[in-house]
């Protein structure tokens, strides 16, 4: 066990943890930030995507030791019902969800895309999201939502 200080959604948290604990379990179990989801534990599905240092990474593969000290953003830190992020508003406007289990990761991946490329083409969006999996078949609405958010922001 060792002490790590994490900078999450603008707040600092100091925790005593095994260094190899994936960030995912720290967020979900130690900090109650459950929007970041466990989907595969292998970095394949994208349900656990968070932003670390401005990059969209899969928190199931990032040991807490590597994440310590770097700014981490989760879905909870993106926006609120009172002050929604354009992506969140766009997903609601497009009703872009079925079970929505994948949606946190979709939004966080799209967030990374829009930071790098504020006006992506449809092909850019599909390619950027293609390693995020959705089982319900909500893809069409997700693409439309990202397009809508890109127009707004």
């Amino acid at each position: 066990m060792a002490e790590f200080t994490l900078d999450i959604n603008g707040s600092r948290h100091t925790l005593d943890l095994d260094a190899d604990t994936p960030l995912l379990y720290v967020l979900r179990n130690e900090l109650g930030l459950t929007a970041t989801r466990f989907g595969c534990g292998l970095g394949e599905c994208g349900a656990c995507t968070v932003s670390i240092d401005g990059r969209s990474l899969r928190s199931c593969q990032v040991p807490v030791a590597s994440a310590a000290g770097r700014p981490i953003l989760t879905l909870e830190g993106l926006g609120t019902p009172e002050d929604p992020h354009p992506l969140q508003q766009a997903f609601i406007d497009e009703q872009a969800a079925q079970c929505a289990f994948c949606i946190s990761g979709m939004i966080m991946t799209a967030h990374g895309l829009l930071q790098r490329n504020p006006s992506p083409t449809e092909a850019d969006i599909k390619s950027a999201l293609s390693a995020n999996l959705c089982g319900c078949g909500t893809h069409l609405r997700i693409v439309r939502a990202v397009q809508r958010a890109a127009k707004v922001s």
């Binding site: 930030l33 019902p81 997903f91 609601i92």
Partner: peptide, 12 residues
């Protein structure tokens, strides 16, 4: 159910 899911406030 969608807004809570989009804001990360829904508990599965």
């Amino acid at each position: 159910d969608i807004p809570d899911k989009i804001f990360g406030r829904f508990a599965y």
